[in-house]
Structure formats: structure tokens, C-alpha cells
Design a binder for these strands. Sequence first.
RNA 1: GGCCCCGUCGUCUAGCGGUUAGGAUCCAUGGUUUUCAUCCAUGUCACAGGAGUUCAAUUCUCCUCGGGGUCACCA
Length: 462
Amino acid sequence: MVVTRFAPSPTGYLHIGGLRTALFSYLWAKENGGKFVLRIEDTDKARNSEEATEAILKAFDWLGLEHDGEITYQSQRDDIYAKYIKQLLDEGKAYKCYMSKEELTELRETQMANKERTKYNGKYRDFDGTPPEGIQPVIRIKAPQTGEIIVKDGVKGDVVFQAEDILDDFVIARGDGAPTYNFVVAIDDHLMGINQVIRGDDHLSNTPKQMVVYEALGFPLPKFNHVPMIHNAAGKKLSKRDGATDVMAYKEMGYTPAALLNFLVRLGWSHGDQEIFSMDEMIHLFNPVDINKSASIYNTDKLDWLNAHYIKNSSNDELAQLLTEYGLVLTSHDKREILLDTLKERAKTLKELASLVNEVLSTPHEYDAKSVKKAFKDGAIEILNNFGKKIDACEELHLPVDYHAVMEGLATEMEIGFGKIGQPLRVALLGKLSGPGLDEVMAIIGKEETMLRIANAITANL
RNA sequence: GGCCCCGUCGUCUAGCGGUUAGGAUCCAUGGUUUUCAUCCAUGUCACAGGAGUUCAAUUCUCCUCGGGGUCACCA
């Protein structure tokens, strides 16, 4: 059974990059009937906040990504880590290092001056003398000093590191006893049963260190899959400064979960020429071996297109439900179907759709000057007048076709083109020349409101 | 700087030795629409560069260049 995880440190909101790796992990677990678990890496007390954890959970909730089982909090697992530290100490696989911070700094400076790689020199590796006074020792793990470390990565292939290039006896527990990241990650991933690690490739160079821990503890290695970064337009790592990268901001902007997820799954992953993926398809088609090796640039053009696509192809029930989040309650509107059918073709976002609905539903109180100038030429008022009377005379006006028939009748009677009626009528009804079909608008707002808007326009003396 | 990763249209990508290098998006044009949007059609645009290997390289190898990541008692 595949068990994947998402392991954010709660220092901020969930952003696009994190969401994508979470999505990949989720999909891969679901495809295999496995589990997708959540671990909050909250060991850095100074930078963590509970709000951040809640924000992440909220985002998952919005997107419908459910994690399996209880959430693991690293801050509650000190006992576990302490146990393994002791074990490694007892087995002689780790040791106490009494080097002072000053000495360590000095060592590094010397190495830098000599253009050498900065690394711990192993001074206390085999120390059995009397430890210096007044130093709280750190615990260092005995890492291999030579040989190859090969990360068999599911995305990148075999990545070969030389121990002497990258390793030293790194710290697994600080002077105050607190364990370090690379140590706890290995322990938690193993204890949580995670056998498929999917994470950003900024972790690739951490992996050998974690492998040292796995090795020392005798844990079997999981499958690593390092997915490439998402870069901003400038080609740099996506940061919070690159606009609205908080996932919940996309909700505010009117994006649907389906569109956002579809957009993200195609960033760094593809399945032939397919662009549109339902959640079911994503789950069945996704496989980490198909993840790209190269970083991609974050560009929302396609997200907009996808969002429009999903809005157009949503049922009106779904849309009405989604629109309640944008302050629009349509359940009671008797022309809801016509309203949404005609407007959902025209909106790129739910927010836009909501404002489109409001525009149609509210009586215009001002008229766009350019539109007025263009539409109100000779005879426009007369045409509006006649149209208003014709509407008034009609008993049965319900559907767009009913209103269309009225327009057609007037055009024939007055021997004028359709546009002669449409232009001024459009301004009267909507306040401007662009917008949805007039037949639909009138059917939606009804006979009374139509007549009111026509009368208003005539009175306004345009 | 050391180590590691990456390099196909502006962007997301297909390609896995022989293709007119495909799709999507964006942009432009035309059609549909009384308008706008949608929709449909068409078009512009790419293998970073150089050496090899090969009958044949976008595809394999090496080098160069370019971009990114990482080098903590942060995660």
C-alpha cells in the first residue's frame, strides 16, 4: 500500500507550490488505494503559529483534499526523537560534540579562507577524554566520509553524490536537546509508514543526509520523488511576494477548486495532449514517473481559461451553490436557469459571474456616454416608445422567444433592421452597448421591469 | 565558490534515432452573435550553442553557455 504525506511547516499560508506537491501526493496515494497523511513540522517555535496550521487545513478543506488519519505534530514527539538519539549514542553511531560555537565559526572561516568546503572536522568523533567545562554538547551522527550516496529518485533518476563532497557529521540534536530537521524527517516518515516521499526538489540535496539517518537506524528507504520547483516570471523560486500565492486568495478571486486543481496537476505533469482532468481522471492517470524534470513558470493564463471552462460546464445547481460564497443567493429566483445559462458563458471567474448577475438584475441608474451617443440617433426614442407599448400589450411574456417575437414584429411593422431596435434597447436595459442577449435579459427581469427600464431611458432624455 | 538538478513555441507541454516537431494557452485574423462574451476556423511562434557516436540526431555522449536549487545548533 502506498502511503504518501504532506509535511508543511506552519510558518505561513499554503501556497501554490506546496499545494501542488500535496496534490501529487494525494493523487498517488488515492490511485493506489493508499493513504495520504499530514504532518505538521512545528519544531521551530519562534516561527510557527497555530493560525498557519488552520489556514492550511482550511485550504485543504476548500479544495476537497482529505487527508487520512490523525494529523501528526512534530512538537508532540520529543520523547520519540529522544529515544532514537539515545539509541544512536548507545550504539556508537552518534556522539557528543563539545565544540563551542566560536570554535566552529573559526573553523569555517579558516576553511573558507583556504577555499575549502566548510564542514565539521570530526574533532569529537572518537573523543574519550575529559569534556571541556561549560559546554552543552550537540549530538552529531557519524556519517560516511567516503563512498557514493545514490538517491534512486522516481523523477530525476539515480542521483549520485560523493560523501566527501557533501557530508560531514551533521548535528542531529542541538545543545538544548532539540532534534534537527533531517533527523526527525527520517524518523517520522518511517514511523508513519510513508513509503513514497513526494516533495520539492529543493530537498534533493537534503536527501543524502536523511539516508544516513535511515541507514543508522536500520530503516528501509522510502521511494523518493523530487518534483521540480514552480518559478515566478523572473525564473526564481516562487515566493510570497509574487502576488496572491496564498491558496485561499484564489477562492476570493473567484476560482473554482476544480479549475485550480486541474491547473496545478498540469504544471510539471501531463498525460499526452489531455488538458481537462476530472478528479477521478487525475487519480487514475497520475503517476510520479510522468512528472517533468524541469521547473515550470507560474503563469495564470491557462488557469483563467480552465476556470471559464469549468464555470461554463457546471450545472446551474453547482453554480448557485458556489455563488453563495460570493454573496449571491439565487435559490428563489424564478428565472435562475435562463439567468445562469446565459451568463455562465461570459464569466472567467465566479466573482465576475456574481457581478454579471447583479448587473442584469439591477435597474441601471446611469448610462454609458459612448453607448448612448452611438445608439440614440434619429428615431431611437420613438422606437423605444413603440417597443414599450407593444410589450405592454402582450399578455403572455415568459421566455426569451416571446420577447424575440415582439422585437421581430416591431422590426417588420416599422420596416427597420433588428439593430435599430436592439441598440437603444440595450442601453435602456443595461446602460451600455455590450452584454448578454436582450431576449434573455428581458425574460429574466420580466415585463414590468423591462417597461420600467424603457420608461427610465426615455425620461432620461438620452 | 563546492555539490546537485534542469534547458522543445512567450507560457504549460507531446516527443523516448528517421515526424511537414504535435496539442493547449496567449496573441492576431476571419466566421457566428443586432453588441460584447462564448463558440468555430485559420495564422504567427520552439528543439540554447558546439563537438562527437550514427546511414540518420530534438532524441545518445561530452564540452560550453544559460537558469535553478542547496551548502546551519532553519524547516
